[in-house]
Amino acid sequence: MGKVIVVTSGKGGVGKTTSSAALGAALAQNGEKVVVVDFDVGLRNLDLVMGAERRVVYDLVNVIQGEAKLTQALIRDKRVETLYLLPASQTRDKDNLTPEGVEQVIAALKNAFDWVICDSPAGIERGATLAMRHADVAIVVTNPEVSSVRDSDRIIGLLDSKTLKAENGERIEKHLLLTRYDAARAERGDMLKVDDVLEILSIPLLGIIPESMDVLRASNVGAPVTLADGRSAPALAYFEATRRLKGESLPVTIPGDKRSFLGKIFGRKAA
């Protein structure tokens, strides 16, 4: 039985899709069977970020409406053979996502994959609540910036009340993924520091993805950043995050930390 993960944030543009693609690819690069599901009906982009935009025939809505079989809608990645994408519909309305339909699709995917990664749309409407509904684990993507932190706080509240796990009185596992972190600006005192965000949101840290040109470069060519350049700083940070996701207790290197300086001396690339 696979694990269902929702990548969510409330605010748009913080890196949900980039992170869904990168984490999914990183897991698959380690041999896990992964499907990344785009829940952003009407504004799909995961296909583009993963470089599969020209291979979309059927989508999530087609499957839910019974117009296509799940196996027909799944797109297998050309670079990593255990990585699959289930695209969102670009033309249909998000009202076509029904709770029952989503439940059936997720149940089928859980049976066939080790990891089901749900890329949530921004906002707190139907698409976002359905994306988080069946999750075992939530990854809250946050930028070190006031509006993003506020929206993440709101999303954490929804995760604790609107998910199936929460309704059954269980705790949903939540992790913070801090993206677009600029160590130099944080050091100068012009960006919230890692500890500030952690203290405010008080959920465990999954990883810190440094602000980097490599992320844009990867999306330009349609490859998850872990595939585009596996040695780049954001890719290494995503690889580490997936190890933590799998339960490994791996200390988080805070960019700009004194330890990363030591890391440089010993030849490791600072994340």
Partner: peptide, 15 residues
């Protein structure tokens, strides 16, 4: 002046 402390404080009170 540094701006991050202001961000932190405003968020804590608001949230």
């Amino acid at each position: 002046a540094q701006s991050a402390p202001a961000a932190r404080e405003r968020l804590q009170v608001l949230l």
